[in-house]
Every structure is written in C-alpha cells, then in structure tokens.
Design a protein around this nucleic acid. Structure first.
Length: 198
DNA sequence: ACATTAAGTGGTG
DNA sequence: CACCACTTAATGT
C-alpha cells in the first residue's frame, strides 16, 4: 500500500466497491478525492478522435489513482475504469492534504511514487515514439517486466487480451497478434495456450 | 442450440 | 502498418 490503510481510514477514508467496467471517474471531471486501490485492477484510458481506446496506464493493488492531479488545478485527462471487481479507498482532497502535512513519511512516499510512475512514462514514451511495431511491442513488454521482481525469462505472464495490448502499444489487434508470433519464433516471448510469457 | 468474445489468417491500400 | 472480412475455438446463457 502506498499509504497505510488504517491511516487513511482515520482521516475519513471510505471504502467503495466497483464492478468490472464501472468508472471510478471520468475525464474532464474535477479531482476531489485521493483514491487508493485496495484490490482489483484499474485502467486509465481515453478515446482518440476515431473513438479508439488508448490505455494510458494500468494500476493494481496498493497503488493510488491519478494522485498527481490533487497537486495542480487541472481536470482529469483520463477516465479510470475498473477492469475487475475493485475495492477502493477514497479520501477527500483536503483530508488527504492534512494527512500529508501530519505525516512526512507518507508525503515522501507519495513523492517517490509519483517520481517512479513519471519515470516509467518517460520510458514508455520513447517506446511508443518508434514507428516500428516490433520496437513498440518489445518496449511495452519491458515496461511490464519492470514492475515484476522476477527478471528471469518467461517468468512474467501478460494478463492482457490482444486488444488491450494493442490499446496500450497504440497498434491494431492484428498487428499485435502477428508481431507477437514473430517474437515467439525468435524466442523473445513464449506463448502457451494463447498466454504470452516474457 | 445460439450469442458472445477473443485469437488467428488473408488480402488490400 | 491500418483496415476489412472472415474462420475458429472457447465460454456463456
């Protein structure tokens, strides 16, 4: 957990449950709460001009959701959508600020978290700037691997559908499928029962 | 049995 | 590559 659950509850945090595909917040809304994901998976996405979904990032247990918006006066640039049943702890913005003032450790944890995610954004941006599908896909795989402790080959199962993978790498489903198969032949990834291991 | 969803294939621009 | 059409396999109701 980014911030201790008990501490959040003491400051007025409220537990809330979401079902798959339910929105935690929509883009263009004004940020008013700090959200911490207790269980489940969330995606941050938006739709481009053609209505195509682009996934900005994926969040899992213990992470906070777009906390950086609480420090600036802007509206959400993305939607937050539950990808599974989720349990979320939400805390009003002013209470969140009080908590940070009272607990320097929490404040530095949040700072470090923001730094880490920003760093990963840099890496992803460089991958996605490439015109080559193969580089984009390899980059996306490395990006996911960077979250996992086990760095050995094929130890990471990519728990995404081909379509979701496409929405993250900015490619079409067919391209992802074909490229992934190519990467399998070269030994870059392993595919068993449709599941991709990297 | 029929509808739905995801993976995979071929061909065109 | 993207885009379109279509097949196949697995699930679900």
């Amino acid at each position: 957990m980014l911030i201790d659950t008990q501490l959040l509850l003491e400051y007025g945090g409220i537990l809330q449950n979401f079902d798959t595909n339910e929105y935690i917040f929509h883009s263009d809304e004004t940020p008013k709460f700090y959200y911490q994901l207790i269980s489940g998976d969330i995606k941050l996405n938006y739709n481009d001009e053609d209505g195509r979904e682009l996934i900005q990032s994926l969040l899992t247990n213990g992470e906070s959701v777009c906390e950086l918006l609480l420090f600036i006066d802007e509206k959400y640039p993305v939607n937050a959508v539950a990808m599974s049943k989720c349990e979320i702890l939400k805390l009003p913005k002013d209470k969140f600020m009080e908590l940070l003032s009272a607990y320097p450790q929490a404040k530095s944890d949040v700072l470090q978290y923001i730094s880490k995610t920003l760093y990963q954004k840099f890496i992803m941006m460089q991958n996605l700037a490439s015109p080559s599908a193969e580089i984009r896909i390899k980059g996306t795989l490395k990006y996911f691997k960077s979250f996992s402790a086990d760095k050995s080959p094929y130890s990471l199962e990519i728990k995404l559908t081909r379509q979701q993978f496409a929405s993250i790498s900015g490619l079409r489903v067919e391209t992802v499928i074909r490229c992934l198969k190519k990467l399998e032949k070269s030994g870059f990834v392993k595919i068993e029962g449709g599941k991709v291991y990297y």
